[in-house]
Structure formats: C-alpha cells, structure tokens
Amino acid sequence: GGVGLPMGAYTPPKTIWLPAMKAKGLEISGTFVRRAGVIQMEMTLTNKAMSVMTDFAIQFNRNSFGLAPAGPLQVLTPLSPNQSIEVALPLSTVGPVMKMEPLNNLQVAVKNNIDVFYFSCQYPISMLFVEDGKMERQVFLATWKDIPNDNESQFQIKDCHLNSDAASNKLQGSNIFTIAKRTVEGQDMLYQSMKLTNSIWVLAELRVQAGNPNYTVCLKCRAAEVSQGVFQCYEAVLKN
C-alpha cells in the first residue's frame, strides 16, 4: 500500500501442492488469499503430460473450519500439453467440519479426464480473520480477565525491525486490530483482537521495545489450540 492507504492482507507465495510426477503430468501450485471478506484458493494448473487434460473438478475433505468450494473449478477450455492456467476458486466457510492435525490442514481431491489425484495443503489461519474482528475495549478487558491463564501462550517473534505503529498498521491489513496501546518502561504494549469465521475470538498482547528486534506476543483464546496457527500469522505478516 502507498502512503495513507491501508495495506492488504498477507498472501503467502504460491507453492507446489501437487507435483506432476505424482499426478500423471498435472502440476498444481497455489496459495490462499482473502480480499474484501472473500477467501479464494488461487491455483496454477500446468499440463506436463503429453495429452490434453479436460473435465476438471475439485473436492475438499472435511476440515477444521468448514472450508468448502463455493462453486465449481472453472477450467473452461481443455489444457494442452505444456499449457498453464490460473484459476481462482472462491471458498465458503460453511462446509462440514472435522478437526484436522495440524488445524489448518486441507485435504483436496482434484479430478480430470485422466484420474483423481489427492494432495494436502495448509492455509494461513489469517485467511479466517474477519473484517469485524475489532472487539469493544470494555469487552476486551472483561474477556482478557475471564480467560484462564492456562489458555495463554507466549511466543517470540525474532528479528523484526518495525516500530509498534508500523506493526499495528501491517497487522490491521490482515484483520488483526489494535484496541489499545500503552507504553510501560520503554515497552509499547499493543492490545489486539481478531475473530475467526467460526466466531472464535483471539486476544493478543504484543510487546515491542525500542531497539530490540525481538517482539513478544501473548495470545489468549478460549480455544487455545488455535494459538500456534495465529502466532504463525503474526510472524508471516510482520516479516513480509
């Protein structure tokens, strides 16, 4: 984003999800994006076989947050040998739910005229952070007190060279909202909230000390198992 413009959500680079050698010549690389509240799986399909590929379709296994294709996989023309196409598949979060390990794992089946292929990929939990995840300050204080200490996890983010305002702006681009900022003994303490698509709230305290490139983030959540994935998002957003 330019000066004064909000930055967009963090999007990881595309990685190869399905190598051609495991899928009779079909290679799929992809990533996940969230734009204006819409989650999309963006994929590049490449035909590395010697015959034309047609009749593509996609299906997900049940997963932790109910991610499901919101429509068919739009491959409207046959894919010739050595040809690549970009496909964006919008996703909904109201599909069937089953807890996965890790929590953000997604098992996918892709079919074409040759066969059915399976692969697993992992999405950043931040894809699930909704736009109205800014908790009321009063509610934040009460919730923070109410969540038991056993549900608090602490993580270090090493080698981060942003000041607390820049960090706050960057995180807001991914729907991690700063509710309050206090400075105590040279440390900026940012109190932040985010809400997942399944209405799970995560509360955070981010500590930034001037001149110290190591941040500390403490996460409090009633569903403590999401904390590891949320921490990974903090790292990814702040370091990219």
Binding site: R137, L141, A180, R182, V184, M189
Partner: peptide
C-alpha cells in the same frame, strides 16, 4: 484519549503484565 476510564484500565493491565 478519554473514554470512561478504559484507557486507565488498559494502563493498569499493561503495568501488571510488565511487573507481575
């Protein structure tokens, strides 16, 4: 920022977290 004592409450939270 004056908001019916909430800012102060965050201050108390921050201090208690820094000096438990």
């Amino acid at each position: 920022e004056i908001e019916d004592g909430l800012d102060e409450a965050f201050g108390r939270l921050a201090v208690s977290r820094t000096n438990p």
